[in-house]
């Protein structure tokens, strides 16, 4: 009895964690290249969820189409945000783009509030699939779907970054923008592409979480966004496998922690964040950087 409950919680944690990982990837990719915390990422996630919701409820599209629509919409939004709010500030000090990002986030959140109203909307899944029963471990169809899609996207991203030319350009740009530029890499395009991919993953996470909790609302991005960021820091910001691991660990920590202190569920992530920042500020898989004097 104890074990089946425990495993059920582990499955819950991994499911939640895989969505955090998807969100964390968006943060980590952007941070890796621009050293910017893209505060608007949580709203990109929320927008992805709403586009998916519209696709399912208004246009009666199947789930797969809704997922793709959510990703495409989020992707476009991410690219536009970068062009409008971050690109003009690329040469400014560190604080200006951060505040601009917060501005975009507030704007999108409240625009959604005006357009959609504050109440949460039901997000029907609109699909049918079998679950998985492994004796004491039970995985619901929805959880299985979320896990499979997340893993598929993460493997795809890994392939993209390690094996393709644009991936190589992204890695080069993250290491050294000036040199990458001298090597003939068009860094504006690489940065746009990074936002596109990161935002698409965030949008996918939005749709998946919306379906998982059967709900979407304009403020839904706030906590998952912050937690996605925590996951990115946990794994070592700028580090892509780190973001995946960080997301899963955070999801597990949160679900298992909530068993004992449910009212402090949202505080767990921040406690984890502060602990990691204090004891290993570069994250679990981050590398050490020393300031050049």
């Amino acid at each position: 009895m104890f074990f089946s409950q425990f495993f059920a919680q582990v499955v819950n944690g991994l499911t939640l964690g895989s969505t955090y990982a998807l969100i964390a990837l968006g943060y980590t990719m952007v941070y890796g290249i621009l050293e910017l915390i893209n505060f608007a990422h949580s709203e990109i996630y929320m927008t992805g969820a709403f586009i998916g919701l519209m696709a399912v409820t208004v246009y009666k599209l199947p789930f797969a189409a809704a997922l793709l629509a959510g990703m495409a919409g989020a992707c476009m939004l991410g690219v536009i945000i970068e062009k409008v709010a971050y690109r003009p500030l690329r040469k400014a000090n560190r604080i200006a783009p951060l505040i601009s990002a917060i501005g975009v986030s507030i704007f999108l959140q409240n625009a959604a509030l005006l357009a959609m109203g504050p109440q949460a909307r039901a997000f029907p899944a609109n699909f049918s699939a079998p679950g998985l029963n492994l004796g004491i471990i039970q995985i619901s169809p929805l959880q299985l779907l979320i896990l499979i899609i997340s893993i598929f996207l993460m493997v795809g991203l890994h392939f993209l970054i390690q094996k393709t030319k644009i991936g190589q350009a992204m890695r080069a740009t993250a290491q050294d923008k000036e040199t990458a530029q001298l090597m003939g890499i068009k860094i504006d395009r690489v940065i746009s592409f990074t936002f596109a991919i990161g935002s698409a993953l965030g949008g996918a996470a939005g749709v998946l979480v919306g379906v998982y909790f059967n709900s979407a609302d304009p403020m839904m991005g706030f906590f998952p966004g912050l937690k996605g960021f925590v996951a990115a820091v946990l794994g070592g910001i700028g580090n892509i496998p780190g973001a995946m691991v960080g997301g899963l660990i955070l999801g597990l920590a949160e679900v298992l922690g909530a068993v004992y202190m449910s009212q402090y569920k949202d505080a767990i992530a921040f406690a984890v964040l502060i602990l990691i920042l204090l004891f290993k500020p570069t994250g679990l898989m981050g590398r050490r950087v020393q300031e050049k004097v």
Binding site: V84, A85, P88, L89, A92, N93, A96, P97, I99, S100, I102, G103, V104, S105, I106, F107, L108, Q109, N110, A111, L113, L114
Partner: peptide, 20 residues
């Protein structure tokens, strides 16, 4: 006044771009 927060958001972005 409903648009107050929307306005805040735009203000921050524009401020950073025009007069950081």
């Amino acid at each position: 006044s409903q648009y107050r927060m929307v306005f805040y958001g735009i203000l921050l972005v524009v401020m950073m771009i025009v007069r950081p």
